[in-house]
Design a protein around this nucleic acid. Structure first.
Lengths: 114, 114
DNA sequence: TTTCTTGCTACCAAATGCGTAGCGAATGAA
DNA sequence: TTCATTCGCTACGCATTTGGTAGCAAGAAA
């Protein structure tokens, strides 16, 4: 029977989050560089490795590759014929991320007028 | 007049996100270790430095201090008499983060049953 | 065959994070 | 007043993660 203390998952070098709370495990994974960016950019449709690199502009292949492996372990993305795609869970997650996109613009504007 | 090309803000060593998109600036800031965790934990009410450290359990004072400075620059948190508190924007952001808390449990359970 | 693109890895430098120790200021008790 | 405690925070050194470049093996195209 699954218990919270089994976390953090997936089992890899974990930075923060030794609290055993799923939300912290999620923050840990999602909080790595480019993790949200990759999910976000995959929202525009399937993409090959190179294509993703271009959508993210400044991401290095090293980091992209690491994130892709982690996101696959988390089951948010997977490989398909046309490259990498969001799984159904990945899409769910993306929908939770979308409001941030809207909000970020207001935040940006607010910061601008010091 | 504010333009997107002014980003990323706030002006600090920026990891990813040189795309000029607010969403990427937000991801960059929010994607640093413990950034979401700090906002999340401040949602339980004002906290002093030490109190926050305990809520986050495994965060080091070094990192906590850096995140606090950054989050203040972003205007998501501020100091008050009782310690650190979320600003009104910080609260808005937290509300966008909350659904992740709910979702993380389902994600955790789904991962458990391999 | 040659040439090109693609997915990815090796390598190393730079940035970030962690853990411990401890300082100066504030607080409280005696 | 003195002493001890707590607090916010910083300095230090080491571990981990990230970034940038180069380039390889595999496949497609010509």
């Amino acid at each position: 029977m699954p218990s919270e203390s089994d976390f953090p998952r997936p089992g890899r070098p974990v930075r923060g989050s030794k609290t055993g709370k799923p939300i912290m495990a999620l923050f840990d994974l999602l909080g790595r560089s480019w993790a949200m960016g990759v999910v976000w950019n995959l929202g525009e449709g399937p993409a090959t490795f190179r294509a993703l690199q271009q959508r993210c502009e400044s991401i290095s292949p090293t980091v992209l590759n690491r994130r892709l492996k982690e996101l696959q372990e988390a089951r948010w993305i997977e490989k398909s014929g046309r490259g990498y795609v969001l799984t159904s869970e990945g899409k769910e997650l993306l929908e939770l991320l979308r409001p941030l996109g809207v909000w970020s613009k207001r935040w940006a504007e607010h910061l601008e007028k010091t």
